[in-house]
Design a protein around this nucleic acid. Structure first.
Lengths: 228, 228
DNA sequence: TAGATTGTTAATCGATTAACAATC
DNA sequence: TAGATTGTTAATCGATTAACAATC
């Protein structure tokens, strides 16, 4: 703001809640860029991302001043700055552990590849699966994991194994050098300091919906589709 | 607290952050019950759920006073009260829309069925899939959705279709009477008031990890596995 | 200059946490 | 009674929001 900061690596501390929304803004900007919009206002972008405009402006202000008062944001420029802030101007190598239904679904998910991530391998404890490919991603024996992580400089691991195996897999990934984990197993993982874990908990999500649902029922339960 | 509230339906307002943690406590209690523990302290339960003990006690206090000072919590009793608070003492019927990799993975996920949910159908726009079963869940033509939702009293829908189709599917589900949606499509959904949406955004999760990962690198980038 | 829209301030709200009195 | 552990208080912290001055 005072012209002191270098234009290169961003050093500001960004609140966690803001970090969690940057991907949403990036996606909204991508959609606008596809529609060939060159400039957009905070109101438009906020609507496209599904958030409040004041919140969006506050969030973006943590990255710097990339808008123009009276005009709006340059779509391409803001897109670049958010991508740089997230750190996906470079590609990240990712391994998925567990080649079951979920692991295969994740490997086939085109959204990863197009958003700064390369799935370099699906790993499974069953060595008979090795050699197969799912959506272009090779399956390897989990025993080969350390070699793959080292060679491909993998820092992010996705856990798609049963809960009972999740902690052991985590320990092995961390020992191999992985420092970020996305956990789909319904288990609490313990990791050393410096390793980040995010979890996606499918049945928790449904239970949270059920909580709110059970508080709506009262009226609708008997009358059913009366007020559609 | 003052003995005024009925023992049946809980009327207290529970903070959203607390609601989001109740499923974690429930899972931790289930694990303790499997281990045949009859009583546990807030410290133990907090450790099992991966949260701070003070936070756990504050959270549980919103449900009522179900612990015993100097002793701890009765595992079975607390389990029942949390399940009742969430509203999963009864079963909820759920449909999954989209019978692709992800939809099939979700249908096969045993965690749902064992936690108060019944997946009554996988729905797909491709009518040639109809009649097949995935992990015991029948696939139906999406055209049959309104009938299924009405007959099976479905209130929760899971969206596992491409982003481009997500809004239309949402509108159709809502028109059929679904009032809670779990969205896996990378799209912002608009719904009328009274309908809850939760989203699981796989590439956002990876991007959030990448953000933190790119701020760790500095030292490790060159030295690699020096400080394992 | 007049209109538009950002970036920032300040007030509000909700969540976290440590500490400890209540009480088994 | 002495030890243990809950339930609650109060302080702190972080996130949200509206409003508006700055400025294109």
């Amino acid at each position: 703001m005072s012209g002191l900061e270098a234009s290169g690596s961003p050093l500001r501390e960004i609140p966690e809640a803001t970090v969690a929304r940057l991907p949403m803004y990036l996606r909204a900007l991508n959609a606008l860029a596809d529609g060939e919009r060159l400039v957009c206002s905070s109101d438009e972008l906020a609507a496209a991302a599904g958030v409040n405009a004041a919140k969006l402006r506050k969030d973006l202000s943590y990255l710097g001043s990339y808008g123009t008062r009276g005009v709006g944001y340059d779509v391409e420029l803001l897109r670049f700055h958010i991508a740089r802030e997230i750190g996906i101007t470079q590609d990240w190598s990712v391994v998925i552990v567990g080649a079951g239904h979920l692991g295969q679904a994740l490997a086939g998910f085109s959204g990863f590849t197009s958003r700064g991530f390369e799935i370099v391998a699906l790993l499974d404890a069953d060595p008979t699966l090795a050699g197969q490919q799912i959506a272009g991603v090779p399956i390897h024996d989990f025993a080969d994991m350390p070699a793959i992580v080292a060679e491909r400089r993998v820092t992010i691991g996705v856990i798609a194994v049963p809960a009972a195996a999740a902690q052991q897999v985590t320990d092995d990934l961390v020992a191999a050098g992985v420092t970020s984990i996305l956990n789909f197993a319904p288990a609490v993982l313990s990791v050393p300091t410096g390793v980040d874990v995010r979890k996606v908990d499918l049945s928790s999500e449904l239970q949270i919906l059920a909580y709110h649902e059970s508080r709506k029922g009262a009226a609708a339960d008997n009358g059913a589709e009366a007020t559609a």
